[in-house]
Write a protein that binds this DNA or RNA. Structure first.
Lengths: 201, 201
DNA sequence: TCGTTCCTTATTCGATCGAACAGCGACAAA
DNA sequence: TTTGTCGCTGTTCGATCGAATAAGGAACGA
């Protein structure tokens, strides 16, 4: 099988970004080492410097990857239900958001790690990815039921995000504490239905 | 002012535990260094080894401190409303839980940092502090409205905890993204009312 | 008052961190 | 075929990590 240099380069970069996403989400930015990331990706540690320059730049690549996945998942669902009644749309989007949180807890873990302290990484994250996503959320105001009140939209937003994601973010704890496997399909669907009915009455 | 050795010792230990709680909650277990903890506490780094032995032991002291504060806050509120009707009790406890999350985001940050990976610290946390707290939560089943169904109680638990805490856990992000100050008294009360009405209909 | 206890400081250790750098070897342009 | 580009490896650097250790020095029991 023939592989061009450009293909090899892209493949290696992707492997590193995937390993970085996992590692950053598990250990946080400070706790993740470039050596562990390289080890998970099966490459030399020097490659990270070569491809991304700094640990910060690699982290930004990882964040962009998970946010692109979220945008794609929600847009896909939204196109599929564009003709449904508003409340049905709202519930379907909420369920899809819960499913995404279940299958991609990494995004929420990364957000939770960075949202605590006001530093350069948080500013980049807000301006580059979070604000566009939040503006799209605000556009759903009438559909979701919180209207044009930006203050109440804030409470609604963090309530929804927290309710949808926590169970999957602390998956290991959930399983050990309650015996419920948060990654089981029936658990995910049950939580999606629970949160959708709660937030879209 | 005269200070005995025992008082001095207790005071120093408390200062270190408080600094450790802050630092662990901001940077996670791996990201927090004993040197930064010592610096915030205004003491020498060697003192941490002397008083607590290892970084792990200091972390356990910090966790015990915040869990004791949570238990005390909820018990205090519960005693004050023991004669009220069930739904009113449920809402009052929910509001108190939101207020505690707002004033003690450290507990939730520490939980979020440790609940991701199944390791020795998580097992200690579940058996020592989390399971007793969860059992007390389950006893509220009839009052809160999820009855004796342990599976639905799980979904209810993580929905409540996530909804109540996220806004304050990522306080820096919330302020930068939405302009809402999550530490303002009116914000806290608004969120408490919002979550209480949502989860206790 | 004297010797002991023990809280605290200062120093040091091996390990590990992010990053830089020189060189290797395969591929592509000429 | 020659020459240069480029993905990649191996090694090394100074900084910082958690932890151990010896010594200082004030509060103690006698």
């Amino acid at each position: 099988m023939m592989v061009t240099r450009a293909e090899q380069r892209a493949h290696t970069r992707q492997r590193i970004v995937e390993a970085a996403t996992e590692t950053f989400s598990e250990r946080g930015f400070h706790g993740a080492s470039t050596r562990e990331i390289a080890s998970r990706a099966g490459v030399n540690q020097g490659l990270i410097t070569h491809h991304f320059g700094t640990k910060d730049a690699l982290w930004r690549e990882a964040m962009s990857g998970v946010f692109d996945a979220l945008t794609e998942a929600l847009d896909h669902r939204r196109r599929a239900i564009v003709d449904a009644p508003p409340r049905q749309q709202a519930r379907a989007l909420t369920r899809e958001f819960v499913r995404f949180a279940a299958h991609n807890p990494t995004l929420f873990r990364l957000m939770l790690d960075e949202g605590k302290v006001d530093d350069e990484r948080l500013r980049w994250l807000v301006e580059t990815h979070l604000r566009p996503a939040y503006e799209r959320f605000l556009e759903l105001g009438d559909t979701m039921g919180f209207g044009g009140d930006r203050t109440m939209a804030t409470h609604y937003y963090y309530t929804l995000a927290g309710a949808a994601s926590l169970m999957f973010v602390v998956g290991a704890e959930c399983e050990q504490l309650t015996g419920v496997d948060p990654q089981a399909d029936e658990t995910i669907e049950r939580h999606a239905e629970f949160v959708a009915r709660l937030l879209v009455p």
